[in-house]
Lab assay of single mutants.
Amino acid sequence: EPLWIRPDAPSRCTWQLGRPASESPHHHTAPAKSPKILPDILKKIGDTPMVRINKIGKKFGLKCELLAKCEFFNAGGSVKDRISLRMIEDAERDGTLKPGDTIIEPTSGNTGIGLALAAAVRGYRCIIVMPEKMSSEKVDVLRALGAEIVRTPTNARFDSPESHVGVAWRLKNEIPNSHILDQYRNASNPLAHYDTTADEILQQCDGKLDMLVASVGTGGTITGIARKLKEKCPGCRIIGVDPEGSILAEPEELNQTEQTTYEVEGIGYDFIPTVLDRTVVDKWFKSNDEEAFTFARMLIAQEGLLCGGSAGSTVAVAVKAAQELQEGQRCVVILPDSVRNYMTKFLSDRWMLQKGFLKEEDLTEKKPWWWHLRVQELGLSAPLTVLPTITCGHTIEILREKGFDQAPVVDEAGVILGMVTLGNMLSSLLAGKVQPSDQVGKVIYKQFKQIRLTDTLGRLSHILEMDHFALVVHEQIQYHSTGKSSQRQMVFGVVTAIDLLNFVAAQERDQK
């Protein structure tokens, strides 16, 4: 057995438009009618409502009807409940999964919650491996369901041993009777949507819809739904939504950006999952974080739909894509998950301010006199920076000697690579993860907040409520011999709460 199987392995699926269902090699399930009293909570997966979006479509000038398939009504709160249950049931049916076995899954959280929910009911041990950027709410729900959680670096490539995929496979090879159901490759993922989600949409719309818009992560949702719609409703256009920084969209030119990270969760990847059939997507749109969270908040405030950030991405694209539809036509959007997962993220004004998705003037509360002053007023001194090749031991000596707790790590040209902190280095040394002679590049981390000289002290204040420091950066445009230009970030300084307090105190003292 291989040590790991690539999540982007070539698909062996034989589905073709027009091929009889009787030739399918898979076990198919028909939607079942729910009894009045459910035998367990797993029976509350599927049969989610279709809700008309009344205000947002009109606000953006849509002539067509805009409908939302509300997947956050599933038992675990997301569309991923469907595939989690289906993968477990299919693994039980073919004898792969037996009582007492362990389920391991690399996930952005929602599939993990679905699997942990099913594992709690069915009696399996469950280990979820997820990147650090995923919300604390997801972690809390997983723990409450009895799952064990392993976190991995957000910026690790999918084929790196440190990625959530790599760590999951390492655990599988170490733990007896453990299984990775593997949402990236498992046919049960798109089949769950082909058999149930798509049929529900067709039934709820009486077979009449002209466009379907869905955000894409593993691709199982859009693949399964689109294949069924292509068979039953061939005139329906399928629109895929991919965040900026991901590479799922086609044509490839759409993916060209210097951005590699994004805040919206559960969609987009740096590889093409095996289950994603991009041939059934008629057109791709890219979405960005700001519009995703703005539209998610709009869905909550104006439509009462308590959905997550990827739902915002989907609707932001839908109001663009559906401009081509006329009166009497219908566009369906998939709202994948609930706001429950993001209470401390985009639902929080403070978080939105820190990330730059909300401006101070958007909030009406009274601010102190210094709130709208610029960061450049602080008069920061030149920063202490270190090269990635310097040793951890030497870096600790320098920081202690100069009285700093942290320093930016830059390359020879001064471009920011990340940050090192005294606390992080000492804990890594004590844990045996690094040696004093190791290069400081081994303990770089990139989960820090950046701020510009033109940003306000109010925004800085919000950042420092949650973080010990902020890195002050400025952009530099560099022209190359080819005539092309590129933008790079340079370090201007490091600012802490002490710097802000000293500035405010000094100004008030001078005024007296």
Score class of each variant (00 low, 15 high):
343 M>I: 09
487 Q>R: 14
430 L>Y: 13
427 S>P: 09
321 A>W: 03
375 V>M: 13
295 F>S: 14
291 E>C: 15
257 T>M: 11
394 H>A: 02
370 W>S: 04
306 L>V: 02
289 D>Q: 01
411 D>K: 13
469 F>V: 09
368 P>N: 10
416 I>M: 14
288 N>Y: 14
270 D>S: 04
328 G>T: 08
345 K>G: 03
261 T>M: 12
260 T>L: 04
486 S>T: 14
434 V>F: 15
491 V>M: 14
337 D>V: 00
407 A>T: 14
246 S>Y: 00
323 Q>I: 07
356 G>Y: 04
254 L>E: 03
370 W>N: 01
506 A>W: 09
478 Q>M: 12
379 G>E: 12
496 T>K: 08
495 V>T: 14
333 V>C: 12
317 V>T: 09
442 K>L: 15
295 F>D: 04
322 A>K: 02
255 N>F: 03
265 E>A: 01
238 I>Q: 05
253 E>D: 14
381 S>R: 12
362 D>R: 14
264 V>T: 06
471 L>E: 06
239 I>N: 01
478 Q>V: 06
291 E>H: 05
276 L>A: 02
337 D>I: 02
436 P>N: 04
238 I>T: 09
256 Q>I: 12
357 F>H: 06
321 A>P: 10
425 M>D: 08
448 F>C: 15
343 M>F: 06
243 P>G: 03
307 C>Y: 06
418 G>C: 09
360 E>C: 09
377 E>D: 11
478 Q>E: 08
430 L>R: 15
401 E>V: 15
295 F>N: 06
246 S>T: 04
489 Q>P: 12
326 Q>R: 13
466 M>R: 09
384 L>T: 09
277 D>V: 02
417 L>Y: 12
466 M>K: 15
263 E>I: 04
393 G>W: 11
439 Q>N: 15
245 G>A: 04
432 G>H: 14
261 T>D: 04
447 Q>K: 14
440 V>R: 02
414 G>F: 15
443 V>C: 13
391 T>F: 15
501 L>H: 00
474 H>T: 10
380 L>Y: 11
465 E>F: 03
302 Q>N: 12
260 T>Y: 12
277 D>H: 03
283 K>Y: 10
319 V>L: 14
432 G>I: 14
405 D>A: 14
366 K>L: 14
442 K>E: 14
314 T>R: 06
357 F>P: 04
298 M>D: 11
512 K>C: 15
493 G>V: 13
391 T>L: 09
341 N>A: 05
266 G>M: 01
332 V>C: 14
421 T>A: 15
382 A>W: 10
371 W>Y: 10
238 I>R: 00
473 V>H: 09
240 G>Y: 00
459 R>G: 12
448 F>H: 10
385 T>K: 08
329 Q>V: 05
415 V>R: 10
244 E>P: 10
417 L>N: 11
354 Q>I: 04
432 G>M: 05
261 T>R: 09
308 G>F: 00
439 Q>Y: 15
481 S>Q: 11
496 T>Y: 02
353 L>C: 10
341 N>W: 00
398 I>H: 06
239 I>M: 12
404 F>T: 08
420 V>H: 05
373 L>V: 15
308 G>Q: 00
339 V>K: 05
390 I>H: 08
375 V>H: 08
439 Q>V: 14
326 Q>H: 12
362 D>S: 05
365 E>F: 10
318 A>S: 14
286 K>E: 07
425 M>Y: 08
422 L>V: 14
499 D>V: 01
460 L>C: 05
466 M>N: 04
283 K>M: 10
271 F>K: 00
381 S>I: 13
427 S>M: 04
443 V>G: 15
419 M>D: 14
494 V>M: 14
310 S>I: 00
258 E>W: 11
476 Q>E: 13
386 V>L: 15
494 V>P: 07
320 K>S: 13
269 Y>W: 02
426 L>F: 14
241 V>Q: 08
388 P>T: 08
508 E>G: 14
455 D>H: 12
439 Q>G: 10
463 I>N: 05
435 Q>T: 12
400 R>A: 09
440 V>Q: 01
278 R>I: 01
366 K>G: 09
468 H>Q: 13
280 V>M: 12
509 R>K: 14
350 R>M: 12
365 E>H: 14
487 Q>A: 13
478 Q>D: 05
382 A>I: 11
260 T>R: 06
362 D>T: 11
404 F>C: 06
442 K>H: 13
488 R>M: 15
510 D>K: 11
245 G>V: 02
260 T>N: 06
280 V>Q: 10
345 K>I: 02
271 F>H: 03
290 E>H: 10
419 M>S: 14
434 V>Y: 11
499 D>I: 03
474 H>S: 10
273 P>N: 03
276 L>H: 01
248 L>A: 04
271 F>M: 05
470 A>W: 03
256 Q>E: 15
240 G>V: 09
369 W>V: 09
360 E>D: 14
496 T>N: 12
389 T>N: 15
359 K>P: 06
290 E>K: 13
502 N>I: 11
457 L>R: 00
392 C>L: 15
482 T>K: 05
398 I>W: 07
340 R>E: 07
497 A>L: 03
474 H>K: 04
260 T>F: 15
347 L>Y: 07
321 A>C: 13
348 S>P: 09
344 T>C: 06
325 L>C: 04
402 K>H: 13
412 E>L: 13
245 G>D: 02
325 L>K: 05
397 E>H: 12
295 F>R: 06
351 W>G: 02
441 G>S: 11
366 K>V: 15
256 Q>A: 09
298 M>Y: 11
459 R>I: 13
359 K>C: 13
398 I>T: 13
329 Q>P: 05
371 W>M: 09
372 H>Q: 13
266 G>W: 01
269 Y>F: 05
378 L>M: 10
412 E>T: 13
290 E>A: 06
392 C>R: 03
398 I>R: 08
320 K>R: 05
392 C>Q: 09
318 A>F: 02
474 H>L: 08
506 A>Q: 10
262 Y>A: 05
289 D>Y: 01
458 G>W: 11
461 S>C: 14
460 L>Q: 02
330 R>D: 09
285 F>A: 13
296 A>P: 01
249 A>S: 03
447 Q>P: 13
504 V>Y: 12
504 V>F: 14
254 L>Q: 06
462 H>E: 14
383 P>M: 08
354 Q>W: 14
503 F>Q: 04
274 T>R: 06
312 G>M: 01
271 F>N: 00
326 Q>F: 09
238 I>N: 02
305 L>K: 02
471 L>V: 15
245 G>P: 01
356 G>L: 05
391 T>G: 06
445 Y>S: 09
356 G>Q: 07
464 L>K: 07
501 L>I: 11
464 L>S: 08
407 A>W: 05
457 L>P: 03
458 G>A: 13
250 E>M: 08
447 Q>S: 10
426 L>R: 12
290 E>N: 12
326 Q>S: 13
388 P>V: 13
360 E>Q: 14
292 A>Q: 03
266 G>R: 01
371 W>I: 09
333 V>L: 14
477 I>H: 11
295 F>Y: 12
251 P>R: 01
417 L>A: 07
431 A>Q: 09
320 K>E: 12
444 I>R: 14
473 V>D: 10
422 L>S: 11
265 E>Y: 00
353 L>M: 15
403 G>N: 05
382 A>P: 13
296 A>D: 03
284 W>S: 00
505 A>G: 13
309 G>V: 01
396 I>F: 09
398 I>Y: 14
461 S>D: 06
386 V>A: 13
438 D>T: 12
287 S>W: 02
512 K>H: 11
493 G>E: 11
387 L>P: 12
261 T>Q: 11
320 K>T: 15
380 L>M: 14
496 T>S: 15
327 E>Q: 11
285 F>P: 03
510 D>A: 05
277 D>E: 07
338 S>E: 08
388 P>R: 13
341 N>L: 01
367 K>A: 15
479 Y>D: 05
267 I>E: 06
247 I>M: 09
